[in-house]
């Protein structure tokens, strides 16, 4: 059977190829579906606040970096199994996640989550049926509250659900919703008070990767000290003052 031979040779090549390992190539994992943190731009490349920041951090730490996109659901399992070395995907630092991976100090301050409903709705919309993306901290928050949680596979679906009346409001990160509210031409509006759920956003690294973490930690501290991090946040988040 020639196929068997082919398979065997592929396997052999896979197991024995040696090449010069440039030790300093860092693979940076992101989702690419969470504007303005990270998204795929019209050219089909990753873009956003975290991409610009990540590239700057790599430059300062003198690392060669490459971006990799991964589905949100499996973004942590793929980090611990070594498919990439860092996560920069708008990921809030939480105690649960911190047990499994390590975080650098935050590079984006804790952002309150906000409710968005159809324009004209009052605060009661936050108590009724509230949409959230599956497996987010917001979904867990609504589940524990008195409101009825409806979980959708994507952010897009949650917004669509509010528009067509399936849900009274949607709960998500303020920054991510702001873009959508601005673009809705007055059809959608923020409603009720925001809630603080997660911590700040940090870069996730493997627990066994202390050296890499220290390098990025230093670069983030340097960017906080010289004000360049504030400037970058202001650029991507409508002049927002982070105050680092």
């Amino acid at each position: 059977m020639t196929f068997t031979k082919l398979m065997a040779s592929i396997a052999l090549v896979a197991l024995t190829t040696t090449s010069v390992a440039a030790a300093d190539t860092v693979r940076m994992g992101t989702e690419g579906a969470y504007a303005p943190y990270n998204f795929i731009n019209d050219k089909g490349e990753v873009d956003g606040y975290e991409i610009e920041l990540g590239n700057e951090l790599c430059k300062r730490a003198e690392l060669e970096c490459k971006w990799v996109t991964n589905d949100w659901d499996s973004i942590i399992p793929n980090l611990v199994s070594g498919n990439y070395d860092t996560i920069m995907a708008g990921m809030s630092i939480t105690a649960e996640r911190d047990e499994v991976i390590d975080f650098t100090s935050e590079y984006f301050p804790a952002d309150p989550s906000s409710y968005v409903a159809l324009a004209g709705a009052d605060a009661s919309a936050t108590k009724g049926t509230v949409a959230a993306q599956t497996a987010t901290i917001q979904a867990a928050f609504i589940a524990a509250s008195d409101a009825t949680v409806v979980e959708f596979a994507t952010m897009e679906d949650t917004i669509a659900a509010v528009r067509n009346g399936e849900a009274d409001s949607v709960l998500a990160d303020h920054a991510a919703l702001k873009d959508i509210v601005d673009a809705s031409g007055g059809a959608l509006a923020f409603v009720g008070d925001g809630v603080s759920i997660g911590g700040g956003v940090g870069m996730g690294v493997r627990e066994s990767d202390g050296e890499l973490k220290a390098k990025f930690e230093a670069a983030i501290a340097a960017m906080k000290a010289d004000g360049s991090l504030n400037a970058m946040i202001a650029k991507w988040f409508d002049g927002r003052k982070a105050g680092y």
Binding site: A35, N41, T154, A183
Partner: peptide, 12 residues
């Protein structure tokens, strides 16, 4: 999915 999703003014 990526192309069909709504695009805000951040995109061209």
């Amino acid at each position: 999915r990526e192309l069909g999703g709504s695009k805000t003014a951040r995109f061209a």
